[in-house]
């Protein structure tokens, strides 16, 4: 931790320590929702909000929480925000809430959120912790949106339900099935790592 400047934190969370590419965290709930861009967008906005507010709360309460029980307290704080997200989704976007199924609840066990609360919010001020949570969530969001854009274009020929490819284009059935998410993430990690290794060699 050499600097805690907002820009440095953002760069770290979005790129050099991207939760998915580099730390391979939070994949659990990540892949299943990437079949359409809309689902992914809603789901990841939920994750961004939960990560941000959990960090804020943990940071505010850090002197009040006894060290021994902090894990369970953090889990309860996360669960509290996830319940709010779930209730809001069910009230305003019932269709999407239904198609996300168990994955909204699974935000609770998303290792990114607990990881950031433990690694950052425990030792930093509330505002900067909130920012750290938001940018970590955004790093996660970017990767998932990329995966879902690839899957929706090749699988349905659309983005957000709007047709992009001509009707004559053959859609790839595999993009609608779970294995495609694994392949896309695998190849994305390959690309990102290669770019990073090249940069390292240059410097």
């Amino acid at each position: 931790m050499n600097n805690n400047k907002p820009m440095a934190i953002a760069k770290k969370n979005l790129w050099t320590e991207n939760p998915i590419f580099i730390q391979v965290l939070g994949i659990c709930s990540a892949l299943a929702v990437t079949n359409t861009v809309l689902n992914t967008l809603i789901m990841t906005i939920g994750v961004v909000l939960v990560t941000g507010f959990t960090n804020l709360t943990v940071s505010l309460l850090k002197s009040l929480i006894p060290k021994k029980v902090r894990m369970i307290v953090q889990t309860l704080i996360i669960a509290f925000y996830v319940i709010m997200v779930d209730i809001i989704l069910r009230a305003y976007l019932p269709d999407i809430s239904k198609s996300l199924g168990p994955y909204v609840g699974l935000i609770i066990t998303n290792c990114i959120i607990m990881g950031r609360a433990e690694a950052f919010a425990q030792g930093n001020g509330p505002i900067i912790s909130f920012w750290d949570g938001i940018t970590s969530g955004a790093g996660y969001m970017l990767v998932l949106l990329l995966v879902s854009v690839i899957r929706e274009i090749l699988g349905f020929g659309t983005i957000l339900g709007i047709r992009i490819l001509p009707d004559t284009a053959v859609t790839w059935t595999i993009m609608l099935t779970p294995p495609s998410a694994f392949f896309i993430i695998g190849f994305l990690i390959w690309a990102v790592k290669t770019i990073m290794q090249r940069k390292e060699k240059k410097s």
Binding site: P179, A181, F183, G186, F187, I189, K193, Q197
Partner: peptide, 13 residues
């Protein structure tokens, strides 16, 4: 670049 998580994902796929 593919070593580690990359190839693991493709294997899982």
């Amino acid at each position: 670049g593919l070593k580690g998580p990359g190839i693991t994902f493709i294997t899982i796929g």
